[in-house]
Design a protein around this nucleic acid. Structure first.
Lengths: 225, 225
DNA sequence: TGAATTTGGTATATTATTGGTTTGTTATTA
DNA sequence: TAATAACAAACCAATAATATACCAAATTCA
């Protein structure tokens, strides 16, 4: 039983072929009727997808002639996140997050700390669910950065986080996030949060460093297997 | 035996997927029935979760069509370069550069240190020329990051530096970079470089902090005028 | 030259899919 | 035990995808 494909699925697929250079600049795509057969969709769907790609400026449709690629993938650099390696990401977090804690102590409002506590409470119920925990963990760190009130830092954190959203990371998550590790993370998160509550900038930073050291250890241990 | 998942669990998980960019702007989420199967919950629960995300503005539900992501984590990029203020930038540098120094000590090759010394020598001849000094200063910090061998950090540093291109920063430079300040910066740069040469990570980090503290002071003093 | 073929553009009836809704049951919690 | 929340199954109406046919302009080729 084959699934029906929506026009945005088709668009996404063609977009990928163009970005990766499978279809190069000025290439003519196969005729709509052929594409329909190749991609197992009706011609109408193909047309809608191509129409969207034209609006995005990726292709140009010429009547009675064909659809041509209008995108040069040499001009666009692959985002750095695609190729970032786990330990490189850890170094970035080591650089950032301890100081984020200091700034959070200086700037966080009571309501921010309340929200962080809420996320923390939720995390502590997810010892057995790696996926749910990881998502909450992301929220926790994003919220932490937000409390600094510095949009530049927030933006950088988002870039770092988008690395973690990558597919290869989901596998790594499966390997590292065992219940006992999650338990330890929860303890450390709680300690960091307490340090922020009691307005101890250096203590918060120090505890974040310990937390990251734990994370790095479980990472290197996992990649050794 | 699997636990029953509440609608807020589902909402949190989807929220995470959107924040980390696994579901991108304008993507259509899988149909409610599919989500129910994927996330091991009933359709009613999925519906409640989606309803909440819609209230948060993260997604838009379109009748008879689908649920679409209405959150673009790249949108945050635009305001950054327009509105990042010098003191916000200083906080970002405070977060980053001390740790960069540590990593540089661990990874810099002799030839890297030689190049850094070259830039440093050039800077010391530019005590009277604020513009030339500022350019070399940028080079120095970029080269420093490059010695870590971590492309992710390098990329982030580049983003931070690009903020310096905006107008308020240029004006601020005019105000702060007086010869006696440049002289002090040169001393501090030299000390940082020495600490890296002698492979003292914490000393290098500490001296970078002092340097940034000096820079911040002259910044606040300038904006007070 | 001139007819056949190929191309995107358009129209229409049919089928499958999707969110919205209702009803009743089963687990969980206070 | 009573109240709340998740589950399950069925149905509705709007929408999207399909299948098919035909058009007009460009290209190909006898």
């Amino acid at each position: 039983m084959e699934k029906r494909k929506s026009f945005s699925d088709i668009a996404a697929q063609l977009r990928g072929e163009i970005y990766t250079g499978r279809f190069k600049m000025n290439d003519r795509l196969p005729p709509e009727r052929d594409l329909a057969e190749i991609m197992k969709a009706s011609r109408g769907t193909i047309r809608k997808a191509l129409e969207q790609l034209e609006n995005e400026g990726l292709v140009g449709i010429v009547n009675n002639s064909g659809t041509y690629v209008r995108f040069n993938n040499k001009n666009i650099r692959q985002p750095i996140f695609e190729s970032a390696r786990p330990l490189e990401l850890m170094d970035a977090r080591f650089a950032f997050e301890p100081h984020i804690c200091r700034l959070s102590v200086l700037n966080a409002r009571p309501i921010d700390i309340l929200e962080l506590s809420g996320i923390q409470d939720a995390m502590e119920t997810k010892v057995e669910d790696a996926v749910a925990f990881a998502n909450l963990d992301t929220q926790f760190h994003m919220k932490l950065v937000a409390t600094t009130g510095n949009p530049l830092l927030e933006w950088i954190a988002m870039q770092i986080n988008s690395v973690r959203g990558n597919q290869s990371w989901t596998r790594m998550r499966q390997l590292t996030l065992e219940p006992n590790i999650i338990y330890k993370y929860n303890l450390q998160h709680r300690q960091i949060l307490d340090a922020i509550k009691f307005r101890e900038p250096e203590l918060a930073a120090e505890r974040m460093k310990e937390h990251l050291e734990t994370a790095r250890l479980s990472l290197t241990r996992a990649s050794a297997t």
